[in-house]
Design a protein around this nucleic acid. Sequence first.
DNA 1: GTCGGTGCAAATGCTTTGCATTGAT
DNA 2: ATCAATGCAAAGCATTTGCACCGAC
Lengths: 154, 154
Amino acid sequence: MDLRPIKSEGDAEPAIIDPLCSVFRRHLKSLGQKYTPERAQVLDVLVELDDIFQADQLFEEMKGRGYRVSKATMYRTIKLLQEAGIIQQVLLTSETAHYQLAYGRKAQDLLIRLDTDEIIAISVPELAAIRDRVCKEHGLKATGHRFQVFASKG
Amino acid sequence: MDLRPIKSEGDAEPAIIDPLCSVFRRHLKSLGQKYTPERAQVLDVLVELDDIFQADQLFEEMKGRGYRVSKATMYRTIKLLQEAGIIQQVLLTSETAHYQLAYGRKAQDLLIRLDTDEIIAISVPELAAIRDRVCKEHGLKATGHRFQVFASKG
DNA sequence: GTCGGTGCAAATGCTTTGCATTGAT
DNA sequence: ATCAATGCAAAGCATTTGCACCGAC
């Protein structure tokens, strides 16, 4: 599946880069690391990309602007930005594929313990209604959903 | 993140293998393919694995039982089982990582069009309450959630 | 004897890492 | 000088594929 074209639900893009930049600098400083031109360029391009992107899109966009940042540096910067809480992974939780029996399709909803990495299958019946409502609002028909709750020991 | 240990919310495991086996055979027949011993072994081990598993777990478990199925065949079988609707991928939608700005954390909820691969960021405020309730029931504290609706043109 | 099925090993594609070089303080 | 950052190329890792051999009908 190629997920390139993204639309966001009605938010223009303000000049969020300044606060993000501060957060990033602070994170880097806390690690004894520097805010380099390469890292600035990654962040710069990133905030202008439509809200979900893949590493390669980012790389191409940077190339298009004439920025000369290597993939290695880009990936290293992405990791730093995740640590800083500036970006987050979507759709994926880990690198490797996970499967489950589709039988009955009951275990679509998951409670994921971040402290123990335990996954608990849960059932949240009202999600079906929410899902259908959302689709209706967009003139679409739901074919399924996925709900993941991240939690840890209170 | 390693997601190995899985618990399911209170379903014992009945002898579901027979119906699944039939479904699989039917799918294979429709493709002009055969229900081979290797494929049977994959299905066999699979239904006994706790409900979410990784390819490698499956492979190790098969080895443990003395089944001699190659990884290539296992992966090919996994693909066939997905086509047949017997298993489905969880947590992943595609192979490559996708990122988004975490700024404001508003775009956690997504409407994914399967017909156009378009992703629309949505906002479903009541999910926070649902998520907190679920965590409470398990004595945990929520740190976040993810909701993905799959849909296509009605 | 024709097909598909299998195992092996090589290929793939995204991401990470080792290492020598470079740059800032 | 020191310490971290960079680019390149090589390594990793999960998954896929090419190919030669095998087996069922």
